[in-house]
Design a binder for these strands. Structure first.
Lengths: 340, 340
DNA sequence: AAAAACTATGCAAACGATTGCAGAACATAT
DNA sequence: ATATGTTCTGCAATCGTTTGCATAGTTTTT
């Protein structure tokens, strides 16, 4: 059925002009080069015949694919879906398609998908998987590939990224807890090789300072990954220690869920006996038991801003790197309460 | 820095052969055509120079893009992330890239992304947005585009799809509820223009029959979309009616969440006073308050099976359509209990 | 009215691969 | 030794665009 696709030449023949003329008409940039009347005839013929440009031929010639690659650790992690949505919305509006790949936090997977993206000649990359020191970032810089980091950033200075302001977040959390009378606040830290893990921890430290509280090293435990399980382990360590605490602040919502579990298993009521706060405000955080007090990161905006910056970079390679920190909000729900 | 890309000709020159020879060596299918020794030299030269095929040139010539388009209603809906993950894993292993697009359940958006996919010459489509009567499906069939439907299916018979067996699911739910002594079971139905909405409703009806119960039309309310809000509205209608019920079965987990809200707002304890069950077992359904009894659909498998079938179809256009129904499981949690 | 300056269109060469065909080189059969 | 058959490799066309250049046609200038 779907006979051969219509090409430039086909519509050229029909109208009785050369294919290059058709090409010029169809490209807004060069439309004005050709007579109004011919242009009109070409346009209507193209529409009538249902002409669709062949993206390969175009890309081959122009060396632009109007495609960007997005790397996330795991599509299934609810925090990343909104980011991709933001990216997709923005890019789509500009005629780009996005190719998503999961790296599962595996460096070799990251490497191989970078390779795949290169083969497909993506015009740029959005990277949500960067570690604080990351080979991929080095490579991209060396090769001059346009890219921007989202949510997580490497330590490099002159690269673009859009992040949540983790320090502000930390401050808000601690001041909220302090206001409720909490002094002995435990911190369940995410992996320190991710900027999110590191910066949030720094934010916690600074928040404590600002609140006039002294962080207690015995009440800080570092996790190897942002997972429920690590959240549980950390909590059981905390519980096993002899230091008392009235609140625990987790590196992200998923870990907070692990905290819930372990506390619950110990017969401790979250939000009553011990306050718990997370970070991210992932979808459905308001449905947990109890609804989780957390720092809302505007994830969709992180995605769309990252996309916007990438577009700028793609269209003008000389544009200077830029890093945007989006203001987070504290969302108070029932997992935090006055200290008893 | 990233000087000009290495082409076939470059490595041909280096080795002192013609580019076509290099092409043959690099393609496993034609490798045997050329002398071992030359092949070896070409291979090592290619590796050394870091040759990467230009996907556009390849696609232009072969008319295969090794790309597939995936349509979902909303990436942000937690039920779809696992599906995409399954698709991606399977396809990636076969050298394909996936382009994802959200249609937000808007027919015109669906249409335009189909257009976009056509332009990009995707080799096939996975459609998770189909309505029971769907123009897109008609179009694809007419054009002979390889595609498979995932989760939702149109009414058409000879098209491939991979679904959850909604009837079995319904049976399990009702028999579980019946066993707990529930007789007056309300049903909050999803949109009937989606197969999921329709089939699940049929499954409910059949489940009731099998359990020897009589469904009460006054206890069935149809929703316009699978949303929390619709779940709330439906519940308030149910509550307003004079018919009593001891359990409510919702068309999916998200709607069940709406049921929770409204019941709660009425001072009714879910799982105690009234049992509620959902469908899908979306991520974190076990974290809700109370943890939700629901039908677990193997979403990742839905994705990977859909991808597998699509690959078959792409590689052999004559392969007959196939529809797979995956067995769901009932996951009993705390939102259901013995009738009081 | 001829020269100069534009305009609008066509021509043809790319882009980087794949692939049918042809011919060279060599092996085998007669 | 000739005819025949096999391998192997190169040639060149092709996929569908884009785009610099040439040219025919038109307008402006003098």
């Amino acid at each position: 059925m779907s006979k051969t696709r219509i090409t430039l030449k086909d519509v050229a023949n029909k109208v009785g002009v050369h294919s290059s003329t058709v090409s010029r008409v169809l490209n807004p940039e060069t439309r004005k080069m050709v007579t109004e009347e011919i242009a009109a005839r070409i346009l209507s013929a193209a529409a009538e015949m249902g002409y669709r440009p062949n993206a390969f031929a175009q890309s081959l010639k122009t060396n632009r694919s109007f495609t960007v690659g997005v790397m996330v650790p795991d599509l299934t992690n609810p925090a990343f879906a909104p980011i991709i949505k933001g990216i997709d919305n923005m890019l789509e509006a500009h005629g780009y398609s996005v190719i998503v790949a999961n790296t599962y936090n595996l460096p070799e997977k990251q490497q191989s998908t970078a390779e795949k993206f290169r083969e497909r000649h993506v015009d740029g990359l959005i990277i949500a998987t960067a570690q604080r020191k990351d080979k991929l970032i080095d490579d991209c810089r060396r090769e001059g590939t346009p890219f921007v980091q989202a949510v997580r950033a490497s330590n490099d200075t002159d690269v673009s990224s859009v992040l949540s302001d983790e320090h502000i977040g930390g401050n808000m959390v601690i001041s909220h807890l302090a206001q409720l009378g909490h002094k002995r606040i435990a911190y369940v830290a995410g992996p320190q090789f991710f900027s999110t893990g590191y910066e949030r921890y720094q934010g916690f430290l600074q928040g404590m300072k600002n609140a006039g509280l002294k962080p207690d090293d015995d009440l800080v435990v570092f996790c190897e990954e942002f997972s429920e399980e690590e959240g549980r382990n950390a909590t059981s360590k905390l519980l096993a220690g002899r230091k008392k605490f009235t609140a625990v602040y987790a590196g992200n919502d998923i870990m907070a869920l692990g905290v819930y579990d372990e506390l619950e298993a110990d017969g401790i009521k979250c939000g009553k006996d011990i306050s718990v706060v997370g970070f991210d405000d992932m979808p459905f955080a308001d449905k947990f038991n109890p609804p989780l007090t957390t720092v809302h990161t505007p994830l969709v905006n992180v995605g769309s801003e990252a996309a916007r910056i990438l577009l700028e970079k793609i269209n003008d390679a000389d544009i200077p790197a830029r890093t945007i920190k989006l203001k987070p909000d504290l969302i108070v729900r029932e997992s935090t309460g006055r200290v008893r």
